[in-house]
């Protein structure tokens, strides 16, 4: 049994992602959506925390939200980019969904 966590706030101005990372369990999935996608980037002030999270969780990011913000190329290579159909698949794959907003 593992949970899919969704986070929709930027880690630079809000602690939703930090709280999620603190409380998620080993093996859970974390999907970054909307402004949450700013937490899935390489070479930012948040990248060290992201890389720590990658050791314990599977990280996903919603690609259309990256594209809208012009940051597809800045996404961390170890964060899996998914589309809307992939989002639906994840909600089925995990036992439960928890939204951090």
């Amino acid at each position: 049994m593992s949970i899919l966590h969704t986070v929709n706030k930027s880690p630079f101005v809000n602690n939703s992602l930090a709280s999620c990372l603190r409380l998620a369990a080993q093996g859970d999935g974390i999907l970054l959506i909307e402004d949450g996608v700013y937490g899935g980037l390489n070479h930012t002030g948040f990248t060290p925390e992201l890389e720590q999270a990658l050791a314990n969780f599977t990280l996903y990011v919603l690609q259309p939200d990256l594209a809208a913000r012009g940051i597809v190329n800045q996404a961390h290579p170890k964060v899996q980019q998914i589309d809307y159909a992939g989002f639906v698949d994840l909600t089925v794959f995990y036992t439960n969904v928890q939204a951090w907003f």
């Binding site: 259309p64 939200d65 594209a67 809208a68 913000r69 012009g70 589309d83």
Partner: peptide, 8 residues
């Protein structure tokens, strides 16, 4: 730059 909101 490079913002693309088509899918959204």
């Amino acid at each position: 730059n490079q913002q693309d909101t088509k899918t959204l």
